[in-house]
């Protein structure tokens, strides 16, 4: 189990690295999907099958499809790949790398200082997740749903056909 966990985690990290360094938008998205699937496997191995399934359905299966959908419509050709290559100059990397290194150092310090977690993880089934969502976290769920509703109304407003425009053209 431990070995499986490390393999999945390594895949996730590698795939995420590839997401950042790819110049081709669709290829980067494909690596992002692989990364999300690897994270789902990590969830599953840590005893959260429900979270793993939702990760696949919602992130890999729905949100990323929409990303791919939009990029497909944009029809980015060879010229955009060239532009991306120029933007990804080595000098660009210095700043983010320094900041990420600080975070990494902190993470290593915290992991080293804290006691090791319990060996056998507890399996969190669908019922436990549901009880937590509609018990202690009810307010957060309601807030998230209000935000989604706002997004829905906004999308409806933007996509509404102009029935009676202020200026009638021609004729």
């Amino acid at each position: 189990m431990i070995a499986l966990f490390y393999i999945a985690a390594a895949v996730a990290v590698l795939a995420t690295l590839m997401v950042i360094t790819r110049a081709h938008a669709v290829h980067a998205l494909l690596y992002l999907i692989v990364s999300l699937l690897a994270v789902a496997l990590v969830f599953f191995l840590l005893g959260a099958p429900f979270a793993a399934a939702l990760e696949v359905i919602v992130y890999a299966g729905a949100i990323m499809v929409l990303f791919v959908f939009v990029v497909m419509m944009l029809n980015l050709g060879a010229h955009s790949v060239k532009a991306q290559r120029q933007w990804l100059r080595p000098a660009i990397w210095i700043g983010p790398c320094l900041l990420a290194a600080v975070l990494l150092a902190e993470l290593i310090y915290v992991l080293a200082a804290l006691p090791a977690p319990a060996a056998a993880p507890v399996v969190v089934g669908p019922q436990a997740v549901g009880l937590a969502l509609f018990g202690p976290y009810l307010l957060a769920v309601e807030l998230a749903s209000i935000m989604l509703l706002a997004g829905l109304v906004g999308a409806y407003h933007l996509a509404r056909p102009e029935i009676c425009g202020p200026t009638e053209g021609g004729t």
Binding site: V26, P49, F50, A52, A53, V56, V65, M72, P126
Partner: peptide, 25 residues
């Protein structure tokens, strides 16, 4: 005998979109 078998089926059928979307693209 997965305890989230139904969700697994839904997840896999949503991944099936990629085969077609990427093939067309």
């Amino acid at each position: 005998d997965l305890n989230v078998g139904l969700l697994f089926f839904l997840g896999m059928s949503s991944l099936g979109v990629y085969g077609i979307a990427l093939g067309g693209w």
